[in-house]
Every structure is written in C-alpha cells, then in structure tokens.
Simulated scan of single mutants.
Amino acid sequence: MLVIRPIEQKDFPTLKQFAIESGHGFTSLPVNDELLQNKIDHSVASFASRPAGKGECLYFFVAEDSESGEVMGTCAIDAAVGLSAPFYNYLLGKQVHSSPRLGIYNVVDTLTLSNDYTGVSELCTLFLRESARKGLNGRLLSKCRFLFLAEFTELFDHRILAEMRGVSDAKGNSPFWSWLQEHFFSMDFPTVDYLTGIGQKGFIADLMPKFPIYVNLLSKEAKSVIGKTHDNTRPALRMLEEEGFTWRGYVDIFDAGPSVECELSQIRTVRTSRQLKVHVGKTIQGKTHLISNTEFAHFRALIAEVAINEDKAQAVLTDEVARLLKVEDGDTVRLVEI
C-alpha cells in the first residue's frame, strides 16, 4: 500500500533518480543536485513551522510503499508562484482586423506573454514510477493534495493552477520551441528546459518577443501542439478535469502545454470531503476512500476500505490503516469516497 507523507532529507537519492527518469520537459525536477536539495530544504522548512497564511512555501510529498519502504512517486504544492522570480505563460487570445469599407473582417489567434498567475497556488512535480503506475496509485498521488488543500485552505490562494507538460519527443524536441528557437533563440529545448528548472529565467525577459505572436505565422507543427499535452501527462490531466479544472487559454512558453485551473472551493474533492472521528475496528461493508489525517507536519494520506457509521459520524478503519495514518480512536480524519 502506498502512503503519502512529506518529503524528508533521506529521500534525496530517490528524488535525484526521479529527476533522471522523468526526462525532458519536466521542469520542476531538474537533474541538478543543488536545486533538488533546495527543494527538499524548502519543503522541510515549510512543514517545520505552520505559517499564518499564504506565503512562499513549498509542500513536497512522496508516496512510500508501506511494506518495502521504497519511495515510488512525488507530488507537491507551491503555495504562491511568481513572487521571487517571474512566472511566465502565454495567453491565447484574438485580434480582429477589419475594414468595413473593403468588406474585410479577419479574426486571428495571438499568443501574449503574461504574468497573470503571479501569487496563484500551483500543483506541481507529479511523478509516479512506471512500475507503480497501476491500480489507484496515480489517483492517490494526484488527489491527496486536495485533502491537504481542504484541511489548510488558509495557506493557499483561492485559485489553484496546474501546468501540463506539452508535446515533445523522446529526445526532448518540442515542435513549438523549434519555431521559437529558429526566430528568437539559439538554444535547444532541453537547454532552456534545464535553465528554467534551475531558476535561471533571465533569458526569458531578454529574448522572448515582447509583442503578441500571431499564431498563423507559426509553423504547422508548432500550431498543432498549442494547448496539447504530452502522452505521459494525459492521465493526470483527466484526473484534474474530473476535479473541475479547466483550460482558460494559458499555455507554457516553451512547449505550449496547457495550464489548467480551478477555484479552490470548487475542486470536487475539496467540496465533497468531510471530517469524521476515527473508530478502529472491522470495516464491514466498507467502501474505497481517499483518506488523510488532519496533521500538518505529520500529514499522511492513502486509499483504503473504510466503513462509515453515519449515526456516530465515525470512520471505521482497520488497525493497519490507522497505524499508517498515525491516528487512534477519537482522532479526526478527512476522507472522500473514490
């Protein structure tokens, strides 16, 4: 059984391996020891002292196998993006060119550089090892963050963002970036992807076109991937769409992958999850639930069979599930039926 917990210093070797396995286009896991260590340090510090409200905190989680102790995946929440360093997107919009006198009316799509998501909370760094991509593991890894958001809403923005990995091939070549590289840059996609991952974003402001890009001027290949996701990312996008996330025209500036968003209060799991008291016993006629404790620094989440006693407002958990969640009789858990 996989159990979600905050990342710890001991997880560095595994995190580095995940950075290698995740490949090109996974900006939030750069293959750079210093940056990976900084992420762990940032998360450990964020969990060490609960803030009074939203700040530049990173809440980084790992999925640990309860039997082997092996870490099989990661996910994270960045409480507020773009405060220390610019957070760029392109916004897909329209320009109208018309001449009533000549009877001409043309509407063209444009891409405009934007910092509109500054201060928004971001779901990020979702990675599950290939050998663990089965059953409900992916669902647990993605949706456990919503229980954390529901429990600690005061720590996050009212808007929640998730950037989806855009289209690129096995060698890291992005059709969208290829067009930008030809006209504005002299760096290949893996290089800009790496520089962004390690926080060196100055070249974006220096070299990115300052005015809207007319989409009809792009190559056919570049136009075809705007707002499209990488094959490996489609399951994650489907789960977010189930939760109410939608695409509102924002795309990544390098691979044109879509950025989807939802109001925190309207996320399905946030809306429908509830708190119940724990009763440790036999889960007769139990149903599959996503469940977490309500601890901040010692947050735990998993998927298990839970029996609900509505009369007593109790969640009946097995000894094993209670132990893994670090709860006892009378403690509070948050849960939602899968």
Score class of each variant (00 low, 15 high):
Pro6Ile: 08
Pro6Phe: 06
Glu8Ile: 13
Asp33Asn: 13
Asp33Ser: 14
Asp33Gln: 13
Ala45Asp: 12
Phe47Cys: 03
Ser49Val: 07
Arg50Met: 15
Ala52Ile: 13
Gly53Thr: 13
Lys54His: 00
Gly55Met: 06
Phe61Leu: 11
Ser66Lys: 09
Thr74Ala: 10
Ala79Glu: 02
Leu83Gln: 14
Leu83Phe: 12
Ser84Ile: 06
Asn89Tyr: 08
Asn89Gln: 14
Lys94Tyr: 12
Leu102Met: 14
Ile104Val: 15
Asp109Leu: 14
Thr110Trp: 03
Thr110Ile: 14
Thr112Gln: 11
Thr125Leu: 09
Leu126Ala: 10
Leu126Pro: 01
Leu126Tyr: 05
Phe127Asp: 00
Leu128Asn: 03
Arg129Ser: 15
Glu130Pro: 07
Ser131Val: 13
Arg133Glu: 04
Lys143Phe: 01
Lys143Thr: 11
Arg145Lys: 13
Phe146Pro: 04
Leu147Ile: 13
Leu147Phe: 08
Glu151Ser: 15
Phe152Trp: 02
Glu154Ser: 13
Asp157Trp: 02
Arg159Met: 15
Ile160Trp: 02
Ile160Leu: 09
Ala162Gly: 14
Ala162Ser: 15
Ala162Thr: 12
Arg165Gly: 02
Asp169Asn: 15
Ser174Trp: 08
Asp188Gln: 07
Pro190Arg: 05
Asp193Ser: 07
Tyr194Val: 07
Gln200Asp: 11
Lys201Thr: 11
Lys201Asp: 00
Phe203Leu: 03
Leu207Gln: 14
Pro209Gly: 11
Tyr214Phe: 15
Ser219Asp: 08
Ala222Met: 09
Lys228Leu: 10
Thr229Phe: 01
Asp231Cys: 11
Arg234Ser: 04
Ala236Ile: 00
Arg238Lys: 14
Leu240Trp: 02
Glu242Gly: 04
Gly244Glu: 12
Gly244Arg: 13
Trp247Pro: 03
Gly257Trp: 03
Val260Glu: 06
Leu264Lys: 14
Thr269Ile: 15
Arg274Thr: 06
Leu276Asp: 00
Val278Thr: 09
Val278Gln: 08
His279Arg: 14
His279Leu: 11
Lys287Gly: 15
Lys287Glu: 15
Thr288His: 01
Thr288Val: 08
Ile291Pro: 03
Asn293Val: 03
Ala301Arg: 00
Val306Pro: 04
Ala313Thr: 14
Gln314Asp: 10
Thr318Met: 08
Glu320Ile: 11
Asp331Arg: 07
Arg334Pro: 01
